[in-house]
Simulated assay, not measured.
Amino acid sequence: MSRIGKMPVAIPAGVEVTVADGNLVTVKGPKGTLTQQLQPSMTIKQEGAELLVSRPDDGKENRALHGLTRALLHNMVVGVTDGYKKTLEVNGVGYRAAKEGNKLVLNIGYSHTVEVPEIDGITIEVPQPNQIVVSGCDKQKVGQFAAEIREKRPPEPYKGKGIKYADEVIRRKVGKTGAKK
């Protein structure tokens, strides 16, 4: 039995979960509404303030999908109650970020500024010129959008310049040594 799959998903007060035909799950909460089509072979039951996921048999694919389905449901419930947040840091001399309207404007060492438009369901905040906070209720969208921002100038290993996650550690390399005589 899947250790993650057999755990129930707690539904907090103020969250409404609807399971339609074919496992189309809709979760409504204070931060927004998420809808996702989950694997139809899995059985999703709501018992009181909990969601339970069960699988039809112990086939390899069903064992893998059991934990995945439960994790996706849990991420949806957490997303509409607390939301998800990724913090990025901009490192480098003259590198900075600013928010203009609904666009993120980055000065990251190119001859031009890089503009990243905000997408639906994602909010961008720039509390400091060297910090970007991406937040939203969909975990996958938040992570993907943060990865796209980081991709504009990934951190390099010699000086550590670029855009990195706040909790990311850059493994530094030793630069060139002097000429041998």
Rank of each mutant, 00 (worst) to 15 (best):
Y158F: 15
A64F: 07
E100C: 09
G29K: 00
R171T: 15
I11L: 00
A13Q: 15
A64H: 06
E89G: 07
L88D: 07
A98S: 15
Q36C: 06
D82H: 14
T18Y: 03
K176H: 15
E89Y: 14
V93Q: 11
I132T: 02
G92N: 06
K161M: 13
V80L: 05
G83N: 06
R150I: 12
Q37F: 05
I122D: 06
E47F: 09
Q36D: 13
D57F: 10
L88I: 05
D58E: 12
Y95K: 09
V78T: 11
T87N: 10
R153Y: 05
I124P: 07
N102S: 13
I4M: 11
Q131V: 14
K139G: 07
S135M: 11
Q37H: 11
I11F: 02
R96Y: 09
G14M: 04
K152C: 09
F145E: 04
G59K: 09
G48P: 03
K161I: 12
G67W: 00
V25E: 05
A71C: 09
N23C: 03
A98T: 12
G79T: 05
M1P: 12
P129Q: 14
R63S: 05
D57G: 11
P8F: 05
G178T: 15
I163L: 08
I4R: 07
K86I: 11
I163T: 03
K45F: 00
E16L: 02
M7H: 04
K176P: 15
K152H: 07
V9H: 06
T123D: 10
L72I: 02
V25S: 00
G121A: 04
T177K: 13
T113P: 01
E151W: 08
K159M: 13
K99R: 14
H74Y: 13
I124H: 11
G143R: 01
Q131R: 14
T69G: 06
A166L: 12
F145P: 01
V15R: 01
A20N: 13
T33I: 13
V134F: 08
S41R: 13
G79Y: 04
N23A: 03
G143P: 03
G178I: 12
G22K: 01
Q128M: 07
M7V: 06
V142E: 06
T33N: 09
E118W: 00
I149K: 08
I124Y: 10
A10S: 13
Y158M: 12
L68W: 14
V77T: 10
L52P: 01
L24Y: 02
G79S: 09
D58Y: 09
V25Y: 00
V80I: 06
N130P: 00
R171S: 14
R172F: 13
Y165I: 01
C137F: 11
V77H: 03
H74Q: 15
E118T: 06
H112P: 01
V9G: 03
G162Q: 06
G101C: 08
V105K: 04
E50V: 08
K152T: 15
D57N: 14
K28F: 03
P30M: 08
P157S: 12
T69S: 00
D167R: 09
K99N: 04
V77D: 01
V116M: 12
G5W: 05
Y84D: 04
